[in-house]
């Protein structure tokens, strides 16, 4: 018997964890570099605005009361459009998940609609739904509809069939099975689809406000872009980013509440 050699450890890595403060440090470092660069003239005014000027512009926007004048219509558009798109999307997705004929009829249609850039249809929506709020709601609703449908029917497909058979074996009604077994079972998939749908809704907000919007975050950004007003452009973009973070946090909270049975 020779001397035992230690077995070397080889099971490390491949398990990333998120460290809380790193994200904030990256943000602050980037902004600091931009501030120093623009202050010293190493970054030209044409390339990037001064972060401090952007903050200043934001404060002015807030103090002038224009912030809410822009945010309120945008949030309304997001809310109404996304609510329409998501609720119709979930309903259609569940129907596709449950019925053979609807599945055969609608899956190819959804696949055909999915890749259409919804922005391309904006002029058409203006004719159909009017240049005011209707076309904006429609664009956001349409944009959130397709990813929701796809996520929902995928999630319904993944609901454990034995649970459905169990429901049937206890004589539960069709509606009870859908409400108490299919929907909760599909909820994790629906919610992760919702993350994507709502991010798309925010992207489409700018597109929706291209036509005929005097106020709105998207209109504000477009105007800043056409005036080459970089401070305002960055303020608008930052508001959209915050909106995205907010939506993501809200879905996170909903997930923690609705899916607390999972963790």
């Amino acid at each position: 018997m020779s001397e035992p050699r230690p077995v070397s450890f080889r099971g490390g890595g491949f398990a990333p964890k998120s460290v809380r403060w790193i994200g904030a440090v990256v943000f602050i470092a980037l902004i600091a570099v931009a501030e120093i660069g623009t202050q010293t003239g190493w970054i030209s005014a044409l390339t990037l605005p001064k972060p401090s000027d952007v903050l200043d512009t934001f404060v002015q926007l807030y103090q002038s009361g224009l912030l809410w004048k822009h945010l309120t219509p945008s949030l309304t558009r997001l809310l109404v459009g996304a609510l329409l798109g998501v609720s119709v999307g979930i309903s259609v997705g569940v129907l596709i998940g449950l019925f053979s004929y609807i599945r055969s009829g609608l899956v190819p249609l959804v696949a055909a609609i999915f890749p259409i850039p919804k922005i391309a249809l904006l002029p058409l929506f203006v004719i159909w739904f009017g240049i005011d709020e209707g076309s904006k709601y429609a664009l956001i609703a349409f944009g959130t509809f397709t990813p929701t449908v796809v996520a929902t029917y995928g999630a319904v497909d993944n609901v454990d069939r034995t649970l459905i058979r169990m429901g049937q074996s206890f004589g539960l009604s069709w509606w009870s099975i859908v409400r108490k077994i299919v929907l909760p079972g599909a909820m994790p998939g629906i919610l992760s689809g919702l993350r994507i749908s709502l991010a798309i809704a925010i992207i489409l907000l700018v597109a929706a406000e291209m036509l005929g919007a005097e106020y709105g975050i998207g209109a504000y950004i477009l105007e800043a872009g056409s005036l080459y007003d970089l401070e305002r452009l960055f303020v608008g973009v930052a508001i959209l980013s915050l909106l995205g973070i907010g939506v993501s946090a809200a879905i996170g909270a909903i997930e923690r509440y609705l899916l607390r049975w999972r963790n």
Partner: peptide
């Protein structure tokens, strides 16, 4: 009674039993 129990993971013990009474 199923081999893999077929309990709804989002319902408590009580809730799983309640499920078959509610209807």
């Amino acid at each position: 009674v199923f081999q893999d129990f077929a309990l709804l993971p989002w319902r408590t013990v009580e809730g799983n039993i309640s499920l078959v009474l509610e209807d």
